[in-house]
Design a protein around this nucleic acid. Structure first.
Lengths: 333, 333
DNA sequence: GACGGCTATGTTAACGCTCACTCGCGCCCA
DNA sequence: TGGGCGCGAGTGAGCGTTAACATAGCCGTC
């Protein structure tokens, strides 16, 4: 920077003013400085800038497993939005899901100087961990629990599960079975409660939910159990990956979907429309989740205060071929 | 830090020594300093540290679309490895795929102070862009072109494609059709050349490849074309997502897989074992790709020199139910 | 024509940390 | 017993930038 100043014949402060687009610089000096910058290939040192301003222009994202469709898509949405807002994004994956792990991950990010953190915290344990976070650090939780005084952006899992279940009931199914996600995932819990509430409101028997772990394998295993039960005509599976496994299990057992059994998934992964059969599912707008999270975080950073609001992004039922009326022999069984 | 020094009754330099685990500190003073740090909740300012050391402990990852299975998994692998190597990872997604976009993304990362960059650059255009990068910046390309003097970590696409094609030939298929990925993706190109080379070496007719874009939709569309051609008995699809679409198209047209047509995918996504039918595919170890990339990058940073080596990670054929001998009527047609 | 106020630029002092020295003390060996 | 050596600890400088203040020149106004 001193070199640039010398070459342009001005003081380093004038160079700084040019870089920061300060208005009080003559057009001629500005061009002179810019030319010098260009000639020397000068790039401002962000560490020094951060040191003196206290602003790192960096946000942190804590995520559990960025390989899953949901977190990956959310991360992508956040990153896209951050780019527009002139922020950098540094990611910190969690090794384990307990409280100290989250604190440590956030601690790492804070040490590195992030101005705020988005925590993709779909586990109830993580939601609790957020409650005990140092105040003053801007934080937004994605799919977290609203208990803490923290901004939360979440998809309307309950409504999604309800739409899925109601869709099956409306088709005439006596009841709807359910394959859940891992018990400590909030999304899994909410989808399950949405499913249960819908059944109860319809005055229909609530079958015991079968537990999966989001993987296609677990869907397959629970699907085999369901396939062996002849009175199962409708299944709401808590995500599309498990639904793949469920479809497979039914197919192997010769139970036709949707002829014998209807299946609804959750997520609407890009492949869902091409499963066999094309999967009726609930679409989540992860890009919107990412954008909203980032907008909230930037608001917090700029205003210095947490709003502690809950922002809900809608979930939409996408009807495809995996659902239809129950087989006649099964109706009003 | 001054406060900590005061509280512990030492100089700021001694505090610095404690933090950096310098050996020349008495156990008693160390504990005193640590107690003071604890009491004041002191955290070292990384910007100041970066300013004076010139090391930011941060690496950049440039990626095209972190939603796709491959890039997402690679990113995850890199992040996991970075955690162990005590580095932070900041990501920069590309908006477009042209040269200036890459330069800009890398420029952003450099401005922010990254010590090195991993570019997940599966496009030939990006590979070229890397060639014109400022030397001195440690760079590793994932799935890039080895033309530039840059370290490259890549999956053995050619061998994978060959294994897939040969597997189908070995089963007795007269030839193997191919659904490729986008023409500007190196992986797509390499899989296509691997496929073609295998057919040619076998002295078998090489059908025109059909172009997809990695999406299940495009697989479905090309699948419909293939399904209408009765002499197609074997298809090598360049990724699993498209394979889903292809399977769907065959199913709709009543062409049984694997009875009438065998299909091989590429990637081995976690769901592949549960498609209908379970998909024979080529497994890529993206975690290994991420780890290797990071190790190479760290080496460059520490040694200060590019090795310009090409590291190839293997690809493994996973045989499942989507492939079998061709229907008898089709053999030696 | 003097003075207030505005504009363009320069000067100085941090920001929080590490590095290169310096210093004092105890210990070993000649 | 003295000189040197090594170890624990302190002092001062400087990393590159911006903020705050200082300065000089210019314009307009009464």
């Amino acid at each position: 920077m001193t070199d640039v100043a010398q070459l342009a014949g001005v003081s380093h402060q004038t160079v700084s003013r040019v870089i920061n687009k300060h208005p009080s610089v003559t057009a001629t000096t500005r061009t002179r400085v810019l030319a010098a910058i260009e000639e020397l290939g000068y790039r401002r040192n962000s560490a020094a800038r951060t040191l003196v301003t206290g602003k790192s222009q960096t946000l942190g994202v804590v995520t559990l497993n960025s390989t899953l469709y949901g977190p990956a898509s959310t991360l992508y949405g956040i990153e896209q939005a951050a780019l527009e807002s002139q922020y950098f994004v540094t990611v910190a994956s969690l090794r384990s899901t307990d409280r100290p792990a989250v604190r440590q991950a956030i601690g790492r990010l804070v040490d590195q100087g992030v101005e705020g953190v988005v925590v993709i915290a779909p586990l109830d344990s993580l939601a609790q961990a957020l409650a005990s976070l140092p105040t003053g650090l801007p934080v937004v939780a994605v799919e977290g629990d609203a208990a803490a005084d923290i901004d939360v952006v979440t998809v309307d899992q309950h409504a999604g599960a309800q739409a899925a279940t109601q869709h099956l009931l409306d088709l005439g199914h006596a009841t709807v079975w359910h394959v859940t996600g891992p018990g400590d995932w909030l999304e899994a819990q909410q989808r399950t409660t949405g499913w249960r509430a819908t059944l109860e409101r319809a005055g229909v028997e609530v079958p015991p939910p079968l537990r999966g772990d989001w993987s296609a394998r677990s869907g397959y295993e629970t699907g085999r159990v369901l396939a062996s039960m002849p009175d199962v005509t409708a299944v709401f599976v808590a995500n599309d990956s498990m639904a793949v496994g469920v479809l497979r299990a039914f197919h192997e057992r010769g139970r036709d979907v949707p002829g014998d059994v209807s299946v609804v998934g959750f997520d609407d992964v890009p492949e869902a429309a091409y499963f066999s059969p094309p999967l009726t599912t609930i679409r989540q707008d992860f890009g919107e989740v990412g954008r909203r999270s980032l907008a909230l975080l930037v608001d917090q950073i700029e205003s210095g205060a947490r709003a502690a609001e809950r922002h809900v992004v809608g979930a939409t039922l996408i009807v495809r071929d995996s659902t239809q009326k129950p087989p006649t022999k099964a109706r009003r069984q």
